[in-house]
């Protein structure tokens, strides 16, 4: 049977057909490019709108105070200066605070990844009595707000003479129910036959974790690391309560110290903020691929 296309082609010449094809392609290409351009423009506008507070903060940090307190709207500094950063560094030992925050956040991240992944491994791969009950108990701890236990925790650590030390900042946060839950969810989508195969191949549980599980759940670990690091970096209440000396303060407390009544300078404070958000933004930018992949792993088949 003659097809519709071959019948239509018969009625026009070859050249006409070529022209028609070329025109149709041109139109389609124009439509595609126009859509892409419009979308990119909208995305750029939205990004600018969302990033405006951050960009304005950077701008203020580079602005002398005289430029900030004027009647005109100064979005961009006319005479950019690093004085605010210098002042912030002099006013408080910010370098020490940043180092402290790095040590604390780094140790908490490492500790949580190790403890949570091991706990989640037991809940996902091992079979023992009361497994579900224990898991529910762990999950139940998520229902208690941190503020409710902060006094009793304070009394415990002060009883142990841990106050004003790295120990007190790190040890209470070495594991988290949320971390265990997240890892368990990742492991649930892990094929159990790989674990069984590894066991028959002669693997112990630890060898399996080290040789198979960790390399195959890198994205989950990355996501967890970024999430934990940022949370630990932003901790405020606990470090404020358990540290007293400048030696042990973290950056978030340091930032509060810039806001004293006798030396209030908005531009200096913003310079401090810019300095301390740089590490957490860097961690996010470096780990965002892992974070997104980890957060959505198992959401779609692939």
């Amino acid at each position: 049977m003659e097809s519709v296309i071959s019948r239509a082609v018969k009625d026009i010449s070859r050249e006409e057909l070529e022209n028609l094809k070329r025109e149709a392609l041109k139109k389609a290409l124009f439509r595609r490019r126009a859509t892409k351009l419009a979308l990119t423009g909208m995305n750029l506008l939205m990004a600018l709108f969302l990033l405006l507070p951050l960009l304005y903060a950077v701008s203020i940090a580079l602005m002398p105070s005289s430029e900030l307190f004027t009647m005109s709207m100064n979005l961009i500094p006319t005479t950019p200066t690093l004085d605010n950063f210098r002042q912030a560094m002099v006013k408080i030992p910010l370098t020490r605070f940043i180092v402290n925050s790095f040590v604390v956040a780094g140790c908490i991240t490492a500790g949580q990844i190790i403890s949570c992944s091991l706990a989640a491994f037991s809940f996902s791969f091992l079979d023992f009595k009361g497994k579900n009950l224990l898991f529910m108990l762990v999950m139940a701890t998520m229902m208690i707000p941190g503020e409710a236990t902060i006094i009793s925790n304070y009394l415990t650590v002060s009883g142990l003479h841990w106050l004003d030390s790295y120990k007190v900042l790190i040890i209470p946060y070495l594991t988290s129910a949320m971390g265990i839950f997240l890892f368990r969810q990742f492991y649930k989508s892990f094929p159990i036959s790989l674990y069984e195969s590894a066991r028959i191949d002669g693997c112990t549980n630890l060898r399996f974790i080290y040789s198979i599980l960790i390399p195959l759940t890198k994205s989950a670990i990355g996501a967890m690391a970024v999430y934990t690091f940022i949370n630990a970096w932003n901790m405020y209440m606990w470090p404020l309560l358990v540290t007293g000396s400048d030696k042990m303060r973290t950056v978030q407390i340091g930032l509060g110290m810039l806001d004293s009544v006798d030396s209030q300078s908005i531009s200096m404070m913003i310079a401090g903020v810019v300095m301390i958000i740089v590490p957490s933004i860097s961690v996010f930018i470096l780990g965002q691929k892992q974070l997104i992949r980890g957060m959505f792993s198992g959401a779609v088949k692939g």
Partner: peptide, 20 residues
């Protein structure tokens, strides 16, 4: 006896190859 000590090997329906 633990599976690793039975000296048996198993081929799974899903092949169970380590993807990495």
């Amino acid at each position: 006896t633990d599976p690793q000590k039975r000296d048996l090997s198993m081929v799974f329906q899903s092949y169970a190859l380590y993807p990495h």
